[in-house]
Design a protein around this nucleic acid. Sequence first.
DNA 1: TATTGTTATACTCTATAACTATA
DNA 2: TATAGTTATAGAGTATAACAATA
Lengths: 159, 159
Amino acid sequence: MTQQARVFDQLLQIAAILQKDMAQSFEGTGLTGARTHLLWELAALGPSPQNALAAALDVSARNVTGLVDALEAGGYVSRAPHPTDRRISVVSLTGLGEATMARMQREHQMLSEGLVDGLKEVERIEGDLDELIRRLQIVLTPETFENGGTAASRPEAAS
Amino acid sequence: MTQQARVFDQLLQIAAILQKDMAQSFEGTGLTGARTHLLWELAALGPSPQNALAAALDVSARNVTGLVDALEAGGYVSRAPHPTDRRISVVSLTGLGEATMARMQREHQMLSEGLVDGLKEVERIEGDLDELIRRLQIVLTPETFENGGTAASRPEAAS
DNA sequence: TATTGTTATACTCTATAACTATA
DNA sequence: TATAGTTATAGAGTATAACAATA
């Protein structure tokens, strides 16, 4: 039962493809992966304190300051004072930010449809992927093996 | 044919899981994703000029200099002069580097097996994944849509 | 003249710690 | 006293450009 386990490498390959696509995507736009991630969260949450964004993104407050600075400079978001708590700055999408997100959501939808267009047994595949995701989370749980996970995702997936 | 296309999001979720695992993996080891990637390539290629590593990793020569510096400081690789071309420095795995790679390959194998252990129809799933990979590369080809790809990998996959 | 690797410089993401302004 | 966001500092990955040594 040893040699035939290509599945893991296939998943790594998928991760690599998606990551590379994302990295190449933001050229000249002033956007980056991290900044766009913040935009997605902001679109989902609505106007938010940087506080909440840091929690949503699972990054430090300092990091959010930098991302919002850059997005503000690019015209994608704006900061406004909180009506009652003057410590808080509320971040909102600008018109450009909204338009950008609308476009991205549209493109995401198109790609999503294009990926499965004409594919047989899509629902069964979705079930298989759910099972793989479930197993992946178990298998990568550090306690499962003595290792910290590292070896798992051999960095082929990283570039 | 619109609403049911979960597959793309599932793939993004897989990418996010693998990336997160990889990021968490290198704690205190002096290794990182990029450095480990170089080690994998080096293990595959054998002793190589930095030149070749830059090509294999698809990264600038400057970048390789930094990665090799760090790996050399950590004792994972060593630089040696090329026998005939004195411009070239040949990078090799040290004993520690070899041992580290052997361990990682072992762990990778274990995870690979653990992922599919007891799973039904593994070969069919592998075929489905191959098809998805193929389609992914087509769908993400920039020319396919007017976009640069960005929207594709909504950065949920990035953190 | 072309190539290898380096130094110089710069940008991005990320973190912790110290500090300010507010609650 | 605790919280929100900032400045200060630092490490890591990445890039281009200029430069040295060598082909």
